[in-house]
Simulated assay, not measured.
Amino acid sequence: MRYAWIDQQVGRYPLLSLCRVVSVSVNGYRAWKRGGKPGRTRLTDTQLLRLIRAVHAEVKGAYGSPRMTGEIRDRGFPVSV
């Protein structure tokens, strides 16, 4: 609801000022405006660690962080190096 209000007011006032008034970040507003990715599945740190260990075992330790990152992304999970 805060972001929708900001969206209505953004033509009249600076975005930074509006975000400060309702205590949200400019990045948060911009992410809301983009719409995000509703089908995205996020993992907890514990789940991610289990997945990394499972992939590591599957490939017998052959993957470094770039290939591991790609493998996890290919499985549908957003990760970074």
Rank of each mutant, 00 (worst) to 15 (best):
V81Q: 05
V22G: 05
P38Q: 01
W5R: 15
M1I: 13
P66D: 15
E58C: 05
G28V: 04
L51C: 13
L18H: 06
Q47Y: 11
H56T: 11
L48F: 13
Y3L: 05
D7N: 12
G35C: 01
T69N: 09
G76I: 05
Y63P: 09
H56N: 13
G39T: 11
G11A: 12
G70E: 15
A31I: 01
Q47G: 10
G64M: 12
G70W: 14
A62Q: 06
K33E: 04
V81L: 05
A62N: 04
P78M: 00
Y13L: 07
R34C: 02
R42I: 06
L18Q: 04
G70R: 15
R53N: 14
V79S: 09
R40C: 08
G28R: 02
W5L: 15
A62Y: 01
D7G: 07
R73G: 06
R20K: 06
K33F: 02
T41K: 14
L49I: 08
T69H: 10
E71V: 12
G64H: 14
G61T: 00
V79W: 05
V26S: 05
V55E: 13
L43T: 11
E71P: 04
L49R: 14
G36Y: 09
W5C: 11
S23T: 01
L48D: 10
R40A: 07
Y13F: 12
L48P: 07
A31P: 00
M68I: 15
R75N: 09
N27S: 10
A31L: 06
L43I: 10
Q8Y: 07
T46L: 12
A57E: 07
V81C: 04
R67S: 15
E58I: 02
Q47H: 11
R73E: 12
S17T: 05
H56Q: 09
L18E: 05
R40Y: 02
Q47E: 15
V24M: 01
L48I: 11
P14Y: 04
Q47L: 09
Y3R: 10
H56P: 00
R2W: 07
R40W: 03
Y3P: 02
R34A: 08
V10A: 12
S80C: 12
Y3S: 04
L49K: 14
T46Q: 13
G11V: 06
T41N: 08
Q9W: 09
L16Y: 02
R12V: 12
S25A: 06
K37N: 13
L18V: 06
G35P: 01
R12Y: 11
V22Q: 05
T46I: 08
Y13A: 09
S25T: 11
Q8W: 07
K37Y: 10
V21R: 10
P78N: 00
R30Y: 04
R20T: 02
K37G: 01
Y13E: 09
V26I: 07
H56F: 02
Y63I: 08
E71M: 14
R2Q: 12
W32M: 04
Q47I: 13
T44N: 01
